[in-house]
């Protein structure tokens, strides 16, 4: 018997009598009273910052100013103007200073933002850049992870990720250090609801 069948047989022999699965009633969980307030508070708590912009022009202005300063900037957010192609090789992305990426939803209970692979252009982009900017609209906030998983189809694309704050570690004596392997900073740009 191959490994697979051996394992499945051993599991079938070992497992207890079937226990039914009753799907929990997620709706019994109270949402945060104000999604926006909670979201902003948690983005800060996980080490990020929120930047409220009045319109897409303001974002475009921001990006073009950054680009003019000469650093390697990649914009992937449609609201930010021209969407840049992303090279395939990670080596070429090592020096990305800022990446602007469109998130699809933000979670009020923890500050996490869902990002689809197609929004990244290259899966490694949100991890390899020095500073990450995620762009959302205020009407794209959900209460909690239960609602988030109702809204996000996790297998629609080959890869997708919830990002909450910049990369961090506390592996040395529990001292929090921002910027472990990934971005050293995360800014969430919040545009008004459409």
């Amino acid at each position: 018997m191959n490994n697979r069948d051996q394992i499945l047989k051993a599991v079938a022999n070992g497992k207890p009598a079937p226990k039914p699965l009753s799907l929990p009633d997620w709706s019994s969980i109270a949402p945060p009273p104000d999604l926006l307030v909670s979201f902003e508070q948690f983005v800060q708590a996980v080490g990020g910052e929120v930047l409220f912009l009045d319109n897409t022009e303001a974002l475009q202005q921001l990006i073009s100013t950054e680009k003019a300063s000469g650093g390697f900037i990649i914009n992937r957010a449609g609201e930010g103007g021209v969407v840049d192609e992303v090279p395939d090789s990670p080596r070429l992305l090592e020096s990305v200073k800022i990446a602007y990426i469109r998130g699809s939803i933000g979670v009020a209970e923890n500050g996490a933002i869902w990002v689809d692979e197609s929004a990244m252009g290259n899966r490694i982009l949100p991890f390899i850049c020095e500073q990450l900017v995620l762009v959302l609209r205020e009407n794209e906030l959900v209460a909690d992870m239960h609602e988030a998983y109702r809204r996000v189809q996790i297998n629609r694309e080959g890869f997708g990720v919830f990002i909450a704050g910049p990369s961090k570690t506390a592996d040395i004596e529990q001292s929090l250090v921002i910027g472990a392997h990934g971005p050293k900073g995360l800014t969430v740009v919040l545009l008004p609801a459409l």
Partner: peptide
């Protein structure tokens, strides 16, 4: 760790 969520919750479904 007492964080509200891990920084990265990555969902892998298909290879590039």
């Amino acid at each position: 760790t007492g964080q509200p969520v891990t920084t990265y919750t990555s969902h892998f479904h298909r290879p590039r």
